[in-house]
Design a protein around this nucleic acid. Sequence first.
DNA 1: CGCAAACAGTGGCATATGCCACTAATTGAA
DNA 2: TTCAATTAGTGGCATATGCCACTGTTTGCG
Lengths: 152, 152
Amino acid sequence: MSKDTLPGLTLCNNAVLRRATRKLGQFYDDVVAPSGLKATQQGLLYQIHIGDEPAMGAIAAALVMDLSALGHTLKPLIRDGYVETFTDPDDRRIKRVRLTPQGSVKLDEAMKLWRVAQQRFEDMVGKEQAAMLRAALDDIAALDFGIPPAAP
Amino acid sequence: MSKDTLPGLTLCNNAVLRRATRKLGQFYDDVVAPSGLKATQQGLLYQIHIGDEPAMGAIAAALVMDLSALGHTLKPLIRDGYVETFTDPDDRRIKRVRLTPQGSVKLDEAMKLWRVAQQRFEDMVGKEQAAMLRAALDDIAALDFGIPPAAP
DNA sequence: CGCAAACAGTGGCATATGCCACTAATTGAA
DNA sequence: TTCAATTAGTGGCATATGCCACTGTTTGCG
């Protein structure tokens, strides 16, 4: 064999997960790139699309992502005119997000490419295997690791 | 049900993978935090540790990570004195990496915490399930998506 | 009503990652 | 030997993510 570079960390669930994410991320990024979007951005636009002018907090929760991280990630999309935000009139703490017309067009464009990536990936690992993997990963994302704060 | 916030992107292999990575990353980070390291840094130190003064390229390959990204990630560890680099005398293009004494100590400290995280995680999802998941993720990291360049 | 606690975001700072252009070293011919 | 092609890293720029400290809003008492 010629590609057993360094074995090792293959035991850390977190490390292995990150490694796979880098690899798959590069693949989806490559395929979606012609649209000018990163795979993460395409996913975010999609998440916004399927929501009904979702609040930032709702999006962050759905993506299991830090609220401030979402805010940062949203900036380039706002700057490029794909997304816009507005304060919820019923609760001015809440800021809702929606796609602009250009954003919708861009999402359509990216989704076409995404389907190609998705298909290619599933052709390689098998549709069932992919579904099982997603289920397992969904479970992880839904795990409830203990209580960070204290219980007074 | 009360927590079905937004469904959706659960079909994109890449998005689901990233989401799980964020979640698990936060968990491992939290547990390893007392050492002052991020889980990614602990993993990187470990990778260096198990290698024999590995070259940067070898580490990057093992982690399926961009070489420049590795360089960037290494900087804070070098700055904090946990890692040092040196040019390979037989090929001065190559820069090798090794842990400093403090780096070894710090890694030991972090590994103790890592074991706790690893154990807690496997207690939750099951040792077998975790092993299967790692295997599946390893396969993904090893996938060979077509040829980016052309074949002249 | 009035104010403290809880909630939703923002901004700043730091790490994690990638891509690209560029430099330094080697290698492989001609 | 000499020079083009290849290899290994670096630096700059941009996105991806997190945590923390703060600000503006609401909500819930007393």
